[in-house]
Write a protein that binds this DNA or RNA. Structure first.
Lengths: 229, 229
DNA sequence: ACCTGAACACCGTTCAAGT
DNA sequence: ACCTGAACACCGTTCAAGT
């Protein structure tokens, strides 16, 4: 004979399921900061392919539908994560170092943060800054640095956007497989490219992606630097 | 009383459903080129959010499962589309014009093609060239042009990758909303950035994205050009 | 080999019901 | 206001059955 239906489950049952009775809890269980932190943790553990609303809810020990009391969509969660990650980008050098060194350290930091989060790039690239306050704060720090360095005001935004576009594209490049340029059986019909790949100079960098990033970034720093008053 | 079950439907029925009897057809209905063409047409009509395997199958008048006789996955279809689009990128200037003009026309063409297909960038950026023969052909044309222009062989691949990273990032930028940099209610706390946005010089270009692309591209062309022998 | 048709294991999201 | 739990309308993909 089974136990009474109202008998509580033993405290150390192996299912760690979201146990909470229906109805509004006394204190709210969720908030946007908690959702962001859990999302970041889940992405770190399971990657973006394992990042589902159901999995996120499980991490937070709530039903998936509970999330929708705090965010309007999964994209909303990605926006929260993106904004948080942007706050990790190092802009401190704009206060302490010359313009070219500041741009360099900011750009490498920015690329490094998002190379582990490339699925967010689609989100950032088209997201109004008004929806991402920490991202806006980064732009303020960077444009203030450009301004102080004597950059002509009319070109500050364009220069930042150009750098950012390069940074986003380069973040993808970090994730490319090592053999991406192996032409395989078609090597004979592509002699120039095959030779160029074979003789690529790594210039002491650990990864090809770093060589390319350095090359493009230094090109931009040199050309943009010349625009200053 | 209903008609006999075997009675054929009237030829001008309003449902244009995939009507074909079960079993292998006398001649194959599908092939990769046809799938690619239909995918391109569907994307043009419905965008990437409307691009599903079911919708693609409907365009081709087959059952969704029929597609899997010719491609292994939806990603496979995207690879086919990507490779076809890359063949539309204009590399002709590398045969006819000086290096800097050739790079310029190639880069603008490349950006323009993929700015309408940004969801493919995730695919291209990490796709081994051996899986995309037309993409490989583009690299051959470009690296041959760099080689003829006296570019040091050890830096050809890095230079192309840097340009490509910038092109991909810039393709996203084309799709950004016009008010992306509107700081809204936070304008007061971001005075430098807000002023820079207000005073952005469009330099005669139609879109801000074009100004930034020009700025970054010319920076790279200038710096990379100086590397030539 | 190459279709159809039914099924599977998800997915994000909605909404009534409950406190 | 903010949970649960059931449901919905998809989604990509698999696979047996058929020719």
């Amino acid at each position: 004979m089974p136990a009474l239906p109202s008998a509580p489950a033993e405290p150390h049952r192996q299912d760690a399921k979201p146990r909470r009775r229906v109805g509004r809890p006394a204190a709210a269980v969720l908030d946007q900061d908690g959702i962001t932190a859990a999302a970041l943790q889940l992405i770190g553990k399971s990657g973006y392919e394992g990042f589902t609303m159901a999995a996120l809810a499980r991490t937070l020990n709530v039903a998936p539908s509970a999330l929708y009391n705090h965010v309007a969509s999964k994209r909303d969660v990605l926006v929260l994560v993106q904004d948080h990650l942007t706050s990790l980008v190092d802009v401190s050098a704009f206060d302490a170092e010359p313009w070219d060194r500041a741009v360099r350290s900011w750009a490498w930091s920015y690329r490094d943060v998002f190379s582990k989060h490339t699925p967010l790039i689609t989100v950032i690239a088209v997201l109004p800054v008004a929806d991402a306050p920490k991202t806006l704060a980064m732009y303020e720090a960077v444009s203030a640095g450009f301004s102080r360095a004597g950059f002509p005001q009319g070109r500050i935004v364009s220069a930042i956007v150009a750098l950012e576009s390069f940074i986003f594209g380069s973040a993808y490049d970090v994730t490319a497989p090592a053999d991406i340029f192996d032409s395989g059986s078609m090597a004979e019909s592509t002699p120039n490219f095959t030779a160029a790949v074979a003789h690529q100079d790594l210039e002491g960098y650990a990864q090809p992606a770093d060589v390319a990033f350095n090359l493009g970034l230094e090109a931009m720093i040199a050309a943009f630097g010349a625009l200053r008053a």
